[in-house]
């Protein structure tokens, strides 16, 4: 873990909003830093967006832990941005690959784009192509071949089976011998 994380409690107000955002912001800044966002202005802007999301979420559902919610919302924010860049038809694998590409440092200055690009700019198909090009194919398309189990007849296997069958019949099914 890059930055040391301090233990903090995250109490809630009666209306289910976090009481002290400064503590959450501290942890959030560390997490954004680990994501690769190093510019303080960008961190501030993203923290603000995350705070809005957490507050909105707290308004409709009971939050157990505000920091956990903030980390989750950060990831959702990132995914939302990537989905907007890639286009809504993108599947989970494309999204995961794009996330790996940006966090893996394959796209320079991606944090600035994440923070500052408007919806109109996100329609830029060039950036989506760059994102998709970073997708490394782990396996090629399937080209199946049937592979059936070969049979190996071990020596005496059949005769042993036949003999044990006969013994079993003799002792276990006497009615078949005495009609």
């Amino acid at each position: 873990m890059g930055a040391r994380i301090k233990a903090i409690s995250t109490p809630f107000e009666r209306d289910n909003t976090p009481a002290d955002w400064s503590l959450i912001t501290q942890r959030l800044a560390a997490y954004l830093n680990a994501l690769g966002v190093t510019n303080l202005t960008e961190i501030a802007q993203l923290s603000e967006q995350v705070q809005r999301r957490v507050t909105a979420r707290a308004a409709v559902t009971m939050l157990e832990d505000a920091i956990e919610a903030a980390i989750e919302e950060t990831l959702v924010l990132l995914d939302d941005w990537l989905l907007a860049e890639l286009g809504s038809h993108s599947d989970a694998n494309t999204l995961a690959a794009a996330r790996a590409a940006v966090l893996g440092g394959e796209i320079p200055n991606w944090t600035a784009r994440w923070v500052s690009t408007t919806a109109a700019e996100r329609a830029d198909s060039g950036f989506a192509a760059v994102l998709r090009a970073c997708h490394l194919v782990a396996v090629p398309p399937l080209a199946p071949l049937p592979m059936h189990t070969s049979s190996i007849d071990l020596c005496c296997q059949r005769s042993r089976r036949r003999m044990s069958g006969a013994i079993c019949r003799f002792f276990c099914q006497p009615e078949t011998r005495n009609p």
Partner: peptide
């Protein structure tokens, strides 16, 4: 575990997992 904690490695590993 460090790979899970590190967001970059986490994302790389998650990208390899099936959906």
């Amino acid at each position: 575990l460090r790979a899970v904690v590190n967001p970059c490695t986490y994302a790389l590993h998650a990208a390899q997992l099936p959906d």
